[in-house]
Design a protein around this nucleic acid. Sequence first.
RNA 1: GCGGGGGUACCCAAGCGGCCGAAGGGGCAGCGUUGAGGGCGCUGUGCACGUAGGUGCUUCGUGAGUUCGAAUCUCACCCCCCGCACCA
Length: 948
Amino acid sequence: MDPEKLKDIEKKWQKRWKEAGIFEADVDRSKEKFFLAHAYPYPSGPTHHGHARAYLFDDAIARYKRMKGFNVLYPMGWHCTGNPAMIKAEKIHRGDRETIEKLKEAGVPEEEVVKLKDPYKYVRFFATESDLSYKSCLETVGCSIDWRREFMTIDDSYKKFIQWQYSRLKELGYVQQKEYPVVWCPVQEMPLGDNDVEDESQGAKVEEYVAYKFKIEVDGKEVLLPAATLRPETVYGVTNMFLNPELDYVVAGVDDERWLLSRGAYEKMKYQREDVSPIEEFSAEDIIGSYCKNPVTKRDVIILPADFVKGDSATGVVMSVPAHAPYDHIAIEELKKRKDVLKKYDIGEDELDFDYIGLIDLEGYGKYPAVEVVEEMGIKVLDEDKLKKATKEVYRKEFHKGTLREITAYPGKKVDEIKDKVKEDMLARGLAEIYYDTSKPVVCKCGAIGVIKLVDDQWFLKYSDRKWKDMSLDLLEGADVVPDKYRKELEYYLDEWMGDKPCARKKTLGTELPFDKDWMVEPLSDSTVYMAYYTVSKTINQENIEAERLDGSVFDYVFWGKGEPENCKVEKDILKEMREEFLYWYPIDMRIAGTEHLSNHLSFMIFHHAALFDESKWPRGITIHGMVLDEDGNKVSASKGNGYNMKEIAKGGSIDAMRLGMYAKSSPWDDIKFGKKEVDRTIENISSRFQKMLKYVMIEGAEEDTKDVLDRWILSKMQRHTKNTEDAMERLELMEAVNHAFYAVFNDVKDYINKKESPNRRVFKKVIKTWIRILAPFAPHLCEELWKKTGGDGFVSQAEWPEVDSDVIDQAAERGVELGNTVEGDIREIKDITGLEKPEQIRLVVSAEWKRKMKSAVEEGKDLSELMEKDMFRKQGKRAAHYFQELKGEHEREGTMDVEEELQALEEMKEWFEEMFQAEVVVEREEKSQEDKAGKARPGKPAIVLKN
RNA sequence: GCGGGGGUACCCAAGCGGCCGAAGGGGCAGCGUUGAGGGCGCUGUGCACGUAGGUGCUUCGUGAGUUCGAAUCUCACCCCCCGCACCA
């Protein structure tokens, strides 16, 4: 085959596979089934080689299992519900230049870009309808998928499936409604996840502040100063308040009270409470220097000016606890130096001379831990970064180790145990209110400032439910997790980390909640048991079953065997077929996803299966894949443009080479550094190996009646390679498998060909046919071609995996060739050291029988005097004693060859030595040798004599 | 902070108590082939010494320990990565 053609065979075989439909899987009760499903992709943009790697993991497994005789179901669908595509489409609609440029750069034709302003067109484009799509990617790399089962989560029929699930989950009590704070975009009116906000806003969390209502009278009317804190217990240590005179404040009506808030806080407050009424402007300057009353301690504290108080964080009213808050301490110290400011607000110096109030006992610290930490760290001025560190330090220690003092209502209690109780008590007594804010400012990708909205009728999945958790843990226990190191992490998520999860939102691409049409099922929550849908999607697609007919009773029957087929709107025999498919294929044997999905998709899958299906239908295996990084260690992604689209690869080079390169790089679950340059290099390198492989495969060889040591050796090694590949595949260690099936075989075949003048035709043919088959899961296109060229029947994709025959394993031959290699190395070394460049003769002296006897005797633990009683050894005299000492010193080496075996092996490899060193080679027995050095011969290590 | 995973020679990456100076791949070097380059084949690739296949020293993040013996086990320390949700 022309080297240039390597890439052409890929398309050819993909076409033939498709025509023959060999990856289409139907119920076949005569075969054991294997059902694997990868996380279906979310088509948010163009694909790249990072995606390819993830799916190639599945493909190798699917192909291997097929060859091992399993009926393999390997389907794919498209997760189109969600926001990213919607947001992108909107941006295109608005004409956002960056978005449009990026898409063009990624290869979307100009005239197409405009069309993508429709979110449905957008997802279709990247799911299936373009060269940049996931489907194109999967097809181009040769994934052996049953495409008849393909579906999109925005299909009406799939929505029916989701509605069935949620109706049933609600009936089971796992879906409930309650109040919940979410980060919210006031413009788009929807909750914001990390994907929806600008980069610098990512990671923002909802923080629950306790706002203590300090009291002050202004113009005869009471105004409350809601001082927001994350440490409610510190209210006992307040010495003063801080307001920022520069900041815009308002007084708002909240319930029947009047609250002082920064304008920002007021705007945000409206989303959290219904009873916030219009406002009047207020200048903080009016009350700075006055006193207000601590609602808990009833103590009057002074209000001080502070320019560090921010308008976009919390309430704009800050209570100061200098004994435990480094920031407050430094602020007071700083203020003491600002005579001008004090004068401006008419604050006497003595008014700042108050004692701090320590309220937490902390081992190793005095009354005021904050002051000590600040001193330790050498902080003298308002240095934000340093103070942040100091605050963290103090908080960590006090929270974990501190106990409250007598001045609080909770003397002796540990802070971490009492914190929530303090909050509850204060709220109950009406002294404080909850105020939510984001942990840092949030800017939505639409440009709006994010707020916290208190949704009062939020639908939840009750993942906190103990019984549900326990069932999920049972499921996990019965499932294989590969690699098992992730089991602990999953356990932790299921058992502890998972809490109630909002499962619906107001605006998204997706499915309406069946029992509350104002809500859409949140996109992660519609992707939990979709694997079950693959078992029926084939029938739904083929029979064109309209969505209206797929009501709950259909799925009740198909998945649960509940109810009567007669009552369904789908024909009875079709329904039975669906039921049959489900019963045959389910449960799923292997569910594959990335590490980033452990805490969501995979955990949800476990929860929902546990809730909806009985134990016999619970997933049997969870497998994790790693991701692809570029040379700088960044994730390969569409937005960075650091990945290859598969079409580019297919045009320029061999997909199979890329596949092998990816498999060989590291275990499937580890991340690999595989940037574009390295992809190029790898493809080039492996392609050239392919060319050599092609050459080897086509060697005819010669008809020979007997098998020499090399023949027996290569046959034996092929058994081992097959076995090793198989073992590795059973553990999903693709890297190891490829190392055996490709590199190790390659090296052995190369060796064999180098050492033999001409291969033994029958032996070589057998070797090649084995090789092609064990390589087929990894480089399927090439192997199909070779299979055909070497006269294989049908598709290698459907060929049987070679049976391992342990009778063919020939240890003597393996030892023989190994001996040959050692001798070769030794000869080389001797040549090097002695400078005898071109010896005319090489004598190989095989060690004497008695040495072998002595060796095994020593291994059995015999001592010298015992041995010397025997004639055989006594005859040797001193030599025997010396050798005995030597044997005692060396650690045992197993598998001693006997004299005849060693002689034969060396004789058989004589020609090869002669060829290699261009010298006459003589093999002889130690007993018969005239050479002085003959005595150096050891079992398995002949004496070597070079002669000029 | 919580939870999980890691640090192996120039690089990637296996190994997880003795067979480990440490698989495999890449890179690099030498030799051969070739019209040079490339490619291909062979060989080498911790250091030192050696005119006979050897010997000595040294190495698996750092330090200490267990053991006849440690890259592998224990402890402490340093460093790196991932997830922390309502978002795919």
